[in-house]
């Protein structure tokens, strides 16, 4: 049984390195975070920062040429904690957890369903793997779930094909599929990015409602800071395969510490702001993390970089204020930084 003080998921120093012809791409390079039962953690960052690879590694559905290292300690509601990183990616153990205790919603509702099978068939497939082997009970459950996510006429919809549903409907069906097995952790990989703005709001509302009904924890991946403000309890900001800032949502918006987070917040357009002000953007683009030189990943784009320090040593994620962790030399003593560099490891988790 899961004691209340247990976190649901503890990720420690997670790495996903992709072996490519050009070299090793460190898509995820030492990421640590924890999720408590029922908590919503937002994972924020630009495209290419490694957030999608992080969650694929969590589910162990990473690409074939990726190597996953580190610790992914999952405490299921029933049974003993498991280290997902140590499991065989196609093995029986991880498959029992995937889709059951941990479910996932993907970004593209258009391509996430097979066009050749009915919505019902694809929802039932998961239910029969994890909840009941009865075909009829599984179908009934699928219809109930479709009704639950606000799809009208679910008895008919269940036998329809994905191309007969609109994008918003498909994403609702996707959510129904993910929640059908009542997971204790839902991973949502930019679930509203591909939708119209009005539909986005509906889907977000739906996810909030379902969260309070089902009580599952959510790991919410997004690059949309507006969604972050609306949805999540805690935020981890990712940049180039690393978490650069990790705090609760209020202090992130009130007091962003990392120069990258500050720049990110400045680049959000605000309604009611003085007209004709230019929208701030971050100079440059996210570098490709192949054979990256040492030093802070944000060094090249940072306006507050300290030459000789930021480009020679890797900053570590340390607690700068109570419950507010940041990986930046601006908030650490130099001696501390040296200490950190010497004992590379996760003593910051805590």
């Amino acid at each position: 049984m899961n004691a209340d003080n247990h976190p649901l998921l503890e990720v420690e120093n997670l790495k996903a390195h992709l072996t490519l012809d050009e070299g090793v791409l460190k898509a995820v390079d030492g990421v640590s975070f924890t999720i408590a039962p029922g908590q919503i953690l937002g994972l924020v960052g630009e495209s290419g920062c490694g957030k999608s690879m992080t969650v694929q590694a969590l589910m162990r559905i990473e690409p074939k040429f990726a190597r996953v290292e580190g610790k992914i300690l999952f405490h299921p509601p029933r049974g003993l904690p498991v280290d997902l990183a140590a499991l065989e990616p196609h093995g029986q153990e991880i498959r029992a957890i995937r889709g059951g205790d941990i479910a996932m919603i993907f970004q593209e509702p258009m391509t996430s369903f097979s066009p050749l099978h009915t919505i019902g068939n694809q929802i039932v497939e998961g239910i029969r793997l994890h909840r009941t082997s009865s075909r009829r009970a599984a179908r009934q459950l699928a219809i109930e779930m479709l009704a639950r996510v606000g799809i009208s006429n679910p008895q008919q919809r269940v036998d329809e094909y994905p191309h007969q549903l609109s994008g918003g409907m498909r994403q609702r069906a996707m959510i129904a599929m993910a929640l059908a097995c009542e997971p204790s952790l839902l991973i949502a990989d930019e679930p509203t990015t591909a939708l119209d703005v009005t539909v986005q709001a509906q889907v977000l509302q739906l996810m909030r409602d379902l969260q309070s009904d089902f009580g599952m924890a959510i790991l919410y991946i997004t690059h949309d800071l507006g969604v972050v403000a609306n949805m999540v309890d805690e935020v981890a900001v990712m940049y180039l395969g690393k978490i650069v800032e990790y705090t609760d949502v209020n202090s992130l918006f009130a007091n962003p510490l990392h120069p990258y987070t500050q720049a990110l917040l400045k680049s959000v357009p605000k309604v009611g702001k003085k007209q004709r002000t230019r929208l701030a953007s971050i100079e440059g683009s996210v570098p490709v993390p192949i054979n990256r030189p040492p030093g802070c990943a944000f060094y090249a784009r940072c306006t507050k970089a300290i030459d000789g320090l930021c480009n020679t040593r890797d900053p570590q994620l340390v607690e700068a204020e109570a419950g507010h962790r940041v990986s930046c030399f601006l908030y650490q003593e130099e001696g501390e930084a040296v200490d950190e560099a010497e004992n590379q490891g996760g003593h910051y988790a805590g």
């Binding site: 694929q56 559905i61 957890i97 889709g99 996430s112 097979s114 099978h117 998961g126």
Partner: peptide, 26 residues
């Protein structure tokens, strides 16, 4: 490489089953 393969994998479907059911049929 298609997304729906990843979806099926995320549901916990075994590798051979999902290959025959989805990409092979496509």
């Amino acid at each position: 490489e298609k997304q729906y393969v990843k979806t099926a994998r995320a549901k916990g479907v075994s590798e051979w089953r999902l290959i025959i059911k989805y990409p092979f049929r496509m």
